[in-house]
Simulated scan of single mutants.
Amino acid sequence: MQRRHLLGLLGVAGLGTAATGYWRLPLAAAPAALTLPAAMQLLERLAQASLHSVAGWPPAMVFNHCAQSVDYSIDGYPQLKPAWFRHTAGPLAFSVFAARGAMRHPLDEAIPGAPELNEPGEVRVALARLQLAFARFAAHRGRLAAHFAYGELSHDEYALAHVLHLYNHLALLRANGQPIA
């Protein structure tokens, strides 16, 4: 009886958190459409720009981090959150992000168990790494690894997650001194 009561409380708390999170997400327009091809076109435009960060990681680290995430969706993440999380709070968070069309997460938090984000250190090379990761993901038709927090995602769901993740990080970058839009 106590366990069922605790699970019920956790469910109510999770729904409250999700609802709050939903309304706190930004309403600003994304820098491009919420599709993999649009994100890839945006990255091509950014390759021609002078990029800098207004806070948090420098651009090379941002691109390396996003590339890690894309690659891990195919190859497997180094560490997963507990199964209970990947079956409850994680999918709930993703559904909020997907419904809102925007993601908000700590922009200086590495993927659990991932190596340092220092290599490649040059912005253009790190951006090219991300472009290759997106192209590899777009061409991949096999099974995808469980997301470390969201759990099992379809190819389309993962594509959206990767695009939302990238766009969230781009909020702290500037191209030629201007916000990326």
Rank of each mutant, 00 (worst) to 15 (best):
R3Q: 14
L7H: 10
L9T: 03
V12Y: 13
G16V: 00
A18K: 02
T20D: 07
G21C: 07
R24Q: 15
L27A: 10
A38D: 09
Q41M: 11
Q41D: 15
L42G: 07
E44H: 07
A47H: 07
Q48L: 13
L51A: 05
V54P: 07
A55E: 14
W57F: 08
Q68S: 06
V70I: 10
Y77S: 07
Q79P: 08
L80N: 06
K81P: 05
W84M: 08
W84A: 14
G90F: 02
P91S: 11
L92W: 14
L92P: 15
S95C: 08
A98V: 06
A99N: 11
M103F: 11
M103C: 13
H105L: 10
L107I: 05
E109W: 09
A110T: 11
A114R: 00
E116S: 12
L117Q: 02
R124I: 00
A126G: 03
L127C: 05
A128W: 00
L130W: 00
Q131S: 07
Q131I: 02
L132R: 14
L132S: 13
F134I: 00
A135H: 04
A138G: 12
A139M: 10
H147T: 03
L153M: 14
E157I: 03
Y158W: 10
L160C: 09
L160Y: 02
A161W: 05
Y167L: 07
H169G: 11
L172I: 13
L173A: 04
R174K: 08
R174S: 03
A175S: 12
P179I: 02
